[in-house]
Amino acid sequence: MTIDSRFLPRPDAGALLHMTLDGAPITARAGDTLAAAILAASGDASRHSTMGTPRTAYCMMGVCFDCLIEVDGQPNTQACMVAARDGMVLARQNGARGLRKLSSTPAQSNADG
């Protein structure tokens, strides 16, 4: 189900950046990290752990790795450390990430799911 954002709606700030999260449109304001944009949009989990438990971004400073997300095909990206950009394709990670063929994308980190 869809859970309302746990944050108050922000005053209109003009131009928005447009991205998708699991195929659904999601907007961000210039300067937002991906984690901020996702938290502003929804109170749902942004990841399910290797054991299937729901998580959202936690520390917001690159320490805890709870905000891991797939960005433009790159898994295990820290959403709190990446600025939102127009056209980004985001996907929630559910469970552990597997190894992928080297031919599909450049080398990538494979920290954990």
Partner: peptide
């Protein structure tokens, strides 16, 4: 570890960087 539980300092970072206010 549940969604919606967050360190207070992390929420303050969201106030500083994204003008997001917890509800």
């Amino acid at each position: 570890t549940l969604p919606g539980v967050m360190p207070a300092g992390a929420a303050q970072i969201l106030m500083k960087t994204a003008q997001l206010l917890p509800r």
